[in-house]
Amino acid sequence: MGAMTPAQGEATGQPGVLSIGGSVTEIVYALGEGDRLVARDTTSTFPVEAKALPDVGYMRALSPEGVLSVSPGLILSEEGAGPPETMEVLNASGVEIVTIPSVETGPGIADKIRRVGDALGVADKADALAANVEAEIAAARSRAEDLAGDAPKRVLFVLSMQGGRVMASGTGTAAASIIELAGGVNAVTEFEGYKPMTDEAVSRAEPDVILMMDRGGDHAIANEVLFGMPAFQPTPAAETGAIVRMDGLYLLGFGPRTAKAVTDLSQHLYGS
């Protein structure tokens, strides 16, 4: 069944839903409620059916006109949508807005699922999905720890390269959490969040593996170019050419597919 128009939503007694945030959209579909969506934001790229929906723009750069043009009866928004002035206009418009907390840990996914389910009036389905996802993540983590054994890999997550500078993950990030779940050790613990690192700091981190989002076009950087940079040349990762690239939403979204992402990453790190 395709996406409903706002009029169809009203006819069934259910408001047409605009989903903002890739993981929130994934949860809506995982709950079997995708046919209630009338639009999505640019970060909502999975499942493939979502791409057929009208796109209201990037979640942090929304315009009131773009959002209201799809006539949503309910906006399900991941925390961090904006800018603030847009959210003020939307709040004043009378459209119901439910904000779903952004989570960067495995245990937080179940709460996110339940909050989406409550907003959609399908709490029972959400409870079942949340329990299933929790069990899958626990099993994936256990398998990853077995693969890692007594020799966990040091993993450096590189968010971007800005002017030749490495923007990397420290502690308290989604990247740090997924690395730990997959049986790895975050190579950087000296700072929180994502920050630029000097070449010397990258070398001192001694990563065994470089982890990056799989970017295309102008944002892509070839393996040989990356490992030819002074920051990476002395690292164990450069010696073995160990680099893992994964889809950003899949890797860092912390949604229904996280258990599979943990398994895939651990297999990249240690082999199957």
Rank of each mutant, 00 (worst) to 15 (best):
Val202Gly: 02
Leu74Ala: 04
Ala61Leu: 15
Gly241Met: 09
Asp146Ile: 09
Arg165Cys: 00
Ala182Glu: 02
Phe227Lys: 14
Pro236Tyr: 07
Ile75His: 03
Glu79Cys: 02
Leu249Arg: 03
Ala201Cys: 05
Ala238Tyr: 10
Val158Lys: 01
Tyr194Ser: 10
Gly21Lys: 10
Gly253Trp: 13
Val188Met: 05
Val188Gly: 05
Glu104Pro: 00
Lys125Ala: 12
Thr173Tyr: 08
Val225Pro: 00
Leu53Met: 08
Leu31Cys: 05
Gly57Leu: 13
Ser266Arg: 03
Ser93Pro: 03
Ala126Lys: 04
Val28Glu: 02
Pro207Ala: 08
Lys153Leu: 13
Gly108Phe: 09
Phe157Trp: 06
Ala138Arg: 10
Met167Glu: 00
Gly121Val: 13
Asp264Arg: 09
Arg114Gln: 11
Glu145His: 09
Leu120Phe: 03
Asp35Val: 05
Ala174Arg: 03
Leu120His: 05
Ala144Arg: 04
Gly183Thr: 06
Ile27Ser: 01
Ser102Tyr: 12
Ala92Gln: 14
Leu129Ala: 05
Leu37Arg: 00
Glu145Leu: 15
Gly21Arg: 06
Phe191Gly: 04
Asp127Cys: 12
Val28Lys: 00
Ile137Cys: 07
Gly121Ala: 12
Arg36Leu: 15
Ile100Cys: 00
Gln8His: 12
Val28Met: 07
Ala187Cys: 07
Leu62Phe: 14
Ala242Cys: 04
Ser93His: 07
Met229Glu: 06
Leu249Cys: 04
His268Leu: 02
Tyr250Phe: 15
Leu252Lys: 03
Glu134Met: 11
Ala135Ser: 11
Asp150Trp: 09
Val116Gln: 06
Ser142Asn: 11
Ala39Glu: 07
Ser93Asn: 08
Gln14Asp: 09
Arg114Ile: 07
Asn91Gly: 07
Gly228Gln: 04
Gly108Glu: 07
Leu147Phe: 06
Leu156Gln: 01
Thr25Trp: 10
Glu145Arg: 15
